[in-house]
Amino acid sequence: MTPPFHLLAITPPTGPVDPELVAGWRAGAGDLALAVLLREPGAAPEALLDPQGRLAPLIRRCRDRAIPLLLAVDPEHAGRAAALPGVDGLHLRGDPSLARLADLRPRLPGLLGRAVHGEPQAGHHLVDYTLVAPIFAPTTAQPGAPLGSKRPIGLAGLRAWTADPAACVVALGGVGPATAADCLAAGARALAGIGVFFGPPARVEQDVAALSEQLRALHVLSPRARA
């Protein structure tokens, strides 16, 4: 399965975001496909797209640059979120069950992904990608949770997910220039992160360029990526 993107920038859970970082992503990624996941724990779909909200400047910049915007939602809010304007796809949170995916897929014709953790689950044929996390210890903490509180599944856990030929797995959690090659070698089809995309502009552009180079060398140009 061809991945719908190669790099996925996930918005930090709190605080302002700098829309100027988008230029650095584009410069670093070059011709690789990039998407942005709009995410804020506990936020309603409408709040994520609020034209006066904290993500509004980033949303405008991404739309100007034709970067697809995905909306992180709880499965029970998916139908409502799909009707919102300016949404290129939905990302289902919370390890949605196979029954829930089978129910939602016919009603959500656009790009659809899911977030999963732990042991492999069925349902790859019902989504366009599966975001598996955390591979390594995350570098960004969730609100109310200490940094490192999520247990990494490691490369062995990632390989268990990618063993299914139907899987289009996106790796998240501690993924950066030093770990990306191992994730790709373990079968990840794309790379995601928070800190690697949101930080000092010079470092962000450098890190995105490093991830992109490893994607080109180890994944995007491989026979498996072209299949």
Rank of each mutant, 00 (worst) to 15 (best):
T2S: 12
H6D: 15
T14Q: 15
P16W: 01
P19F: 05
E20Y: 00
G24E: 11
W25D: 01
L32R: 08
L34M: 14
A35I: 04
A43M: 12
E46Y: 08
L48I: 08
L48Q: 09
L49C: 07
A66K: 14
L69E: 09
V73N: 02
V73W: 03
P75A: 13
G79E: 14
A81R: 00
D88Q: 08
P96S: 10
R107T: 06
R107F: 01
L112S: 05
H117R: 15
T130P: 07
L131I: 12
A133D: 05
A133W: 09
I135V: 15
G148T: 08
G148I: 08
K150I: 01
R151N: 09
A160K: 13
W161K: 07
P165R: 13
V169E: 08
V169P: 06
G174H: 05
A178W: 04
T179F: 02
A181D: 11
A181M: 02
C183V: 06
R189E: 02
A190K: 04
L191H: 03
L191I: 10
A192E: 02
G193A: 08
G195T: 02
V196M: 00
F197L: 04
A202W: 01
R203N: 05
Q206C: 03
Q206P: 00
V208M: 04
E213T: 11
R216C: 09
L218N: 01
H219A: 14
R226Y: 03
A227P: 07
